[in-house]
Amino acid sequence: MGGYGAFKLALTYPERYAAAASLSGALDVVRLAQAEQAAGQSELKHIFGEANALAGSPNDLFSLAEQVVEQRRPRPSLYQWCGTEDFLYADNVRFREHTESLGLTMTYEEGTGGHEWSCWDTQIQRVLAWLPGEPKKTGSG
């Protein structure tokens, strides 16, 4: 849960994180937990507790994003990418739309691909180029 975790840290502690990136993140854990519960599964229940208590909790990225804006906290820059064939694609689009409606800074990209390393290997280079900070030197020069 790297993308989820990165966004959770940045939105929970925006004073500490200037930026965070998510590649095919499980960004809507509320919806995922509700779907899992409806299917009689319990993996996310073991992580987050009862699905009906997850919305608005410190584990709900949608709520955390709202709190950053409402409490006038620093706004970390966010980078999000998801493959259009990824099973998490609709959740990623929903999160992007939510952050846009709040006025948070989001760099969003998508492309063909699913929830797989071959996509992330390509996109991580874009994340590294996007990260704020001093330009990075390459080579021996």
Score class of each variant (00 low, 15 high):
residue 1 M to H: 15
residue 3 G to V: 07
residue 3 G to D: 12
residue 4 Y to I: 07
residue 6 A to Y: 13
residue 7 F to Y: 14
residue 9 L to Q: 08
residue 9 L to P: 00
residue 10 A to F: 08
residue 10 A to Q: 01
residue 13 Y to E: 10
residue 13 Y to R: 06
residue 16 R to Q: 08
residue 17 Y to A: 03
residue 19 A to H: 10
residue 19 A to P: 06
residue 20 A to G: 09
residue 21 A to I: 08
residue 23 L to W: 08
residue 31 R to P: 00
residue 31 R to T: 09
residue 33 A to M: 11
residue 33 A to K: 10
residue 34 Q to H: 05
residue 35 A to R: 15
residue 37 Q to T: 15
residue 37 Q to I: 05
residue 37 Q to K: 15
residue 39 A to C: 04
residue 40 G to S: 14
residue 40 G to W: 12
residue 45 K to F: 12
residue 46 H to G: 15
residue 47 I to E: 09
residue 48 F to C: 10
residue 52 N to T: 13
residue 53 A to M: 11
residue 55 A to E: 10
residue 55 A to R: 14
residue 55 A to Q: 13
residue 56 G to W: 13
residue 57 S to N: 11
residue 59 N to K: 12
residue 59 N to P: 00
residue 60 D to G: 05
residue 61 L to C: 08
residue 64 L to H: 09
residue 65 A to G: 00
residue 66 E to P: 00
residue 67 Q to D: 04
residue 68 V to K: 01
residue 68 V to R: 08
residue 71 Q to M: 04
residue 72 R to Y: 06
residue 74 P to I: 02
residue 77 S to N: 12
residue 79 Y to C: 06
residue 79 Y to K: 01
residue 82 C to W: 03
residue 82 C to M: 01
residue 85 E to N: 12
residue 90 A to Q: 14
residue 90 A to L: 15
residue 91 D to V: 02
residue 92 N to H: 02
residue 92 N to G: 11
residue 92 N to E: 01
residue 92 N to Q: 06
residue 93 V to M: 12
residue 96 R to V: 15
residue 97 E to W: 06
residue 98 H to R: 14
residue 99 T to C: 15
residue 105 T to H: 11
residue 107 T to Y: 06
residue 107 T to H: 14
residue 107 T to P: 01
residue 109 E to T: 14
residue 110 E to M: 15
residue 113 G to Y: 12
residue 114 G to R: 13
residue 114 G to F: 05
residue 117 W to C: 02
residue 120 W to M: 13
residue 120 W to C: 06
residue 122 T to R: 15
residue 127 V to E: 03
residue 128 L to G: 00
residue 129 A to K: 10
residue 130 W to R: 01
residue 132 P to N: 12
residue 133 G to E: 11
residue 133 G to R: 14
residue 135 P to Y: 07
residue 135 P to E: 10
residue 137 K to M: 14
residue 137 K to I: 11
residue 138 T to D: 03
residue 139 G to Y: 04
residue 140 S to D: 05
residue 140 S to W: 09
